[in-house]
């Protein structure tokens, strides 16, 4: 676990709720500044920073997705599909983030858009406030409990090579290099297969 995962408390109790507002605001701002820093490093090629950033934003996205589903009267066990949908959109649209702008407003705009979309697809028209994301307090967030099924279903429709590469990296946590050795491919070919696989998963989620 990284230092940045300070949002998760073992007790599950929200210790910040009892503090005065300015303390909470400062913690939220501090968290968002940290995201911006990580995203800048990610854009300049630091994949570890990118991994940390995605890990750090996920609990916040999850809490907002659950809240949105609950408000729409939907079972919250679908929240993980929404979280993954948002993460894929963040990934495929990250070139639209301006490195001189703060990261959180960009992230929340994408997340809100995806959440509205997801609720609409389930036949619910719900007003999603951007504050649902911004106001998710450190400590209020939880670990993944529900499982996701949409990506897994689409994964099976990918060409065999792309699926193997994705599974090798995702499930077996192999590096690009190890994956290349395993399938006797070049590292470049692994990167291309990975990128195409993710791009077509993104496209399939958009169509569904």
């Amino acid at each position: 676990m990284y230092v940045h995962d300070f949002v998760i408390y073992r007790s599950g109790r929200n210790e910040l709720k009892d503090r005065p507002n300015y303390v909470v605001g400062a913690r939220v701002r501090e968290r968002e500044d940290e995201w911006t820093g990580l995203m800048r490093s990610a854009i300049s090629g630091d994949s570890t920073a990118y991994h940390r950033l995605l890990k750090a934003i996920t609990p916040v996205l999850r809490a907002a997705a659950r809240r949105g589903l609950a408000r729409a009267g939907q079972p919250i066990d679908q929240s993980e599909d929404i979280v993954q949908d948002i993460l894929l959109a963040v990934h495929s649209k990250r070139h639209t983030w301006d490195v001189n702008a703060p990261f959180a407003p960009w992230l929340f705009a994408i997340a809100r858009n995806k959440l509205i979309d997801a609720l609409r697809r389930r036949g619910k028209r719900v007003f999603v406030n951007i504050d649902d994301f911004a106001e998710t307090l450190p400590g209020e967030t939880q670990e993944q409990t529900a499982s996701a099924s949409e990506i897994a279903a689409h994964l099976n429709t990918l060409p065999a090579r792309q699926r193997q590469v994705l599974q090798s990296i995702a499930v077996d946590s192999a590096s690009i290099k190890d994956t290349a050795a395993k399938f006797s491919m070049s590292e470049g070919a692994v990167r291309v297969a990975l990128h195409r696989g993710l791009a077509s998963l993104t496209a399939k989620l958009r169509e569904s």
């Binding site: 993460l87 990934h91 990167r191 993710l198």
Partner: peptide, 15 residues
Amino acid sequence: MDTDQLIRTLAADNA
């Protein structure tokens, strides 16, 4: 694919 696994693949695609 769980979310941690997805995040791992996205990070691998950062380049």
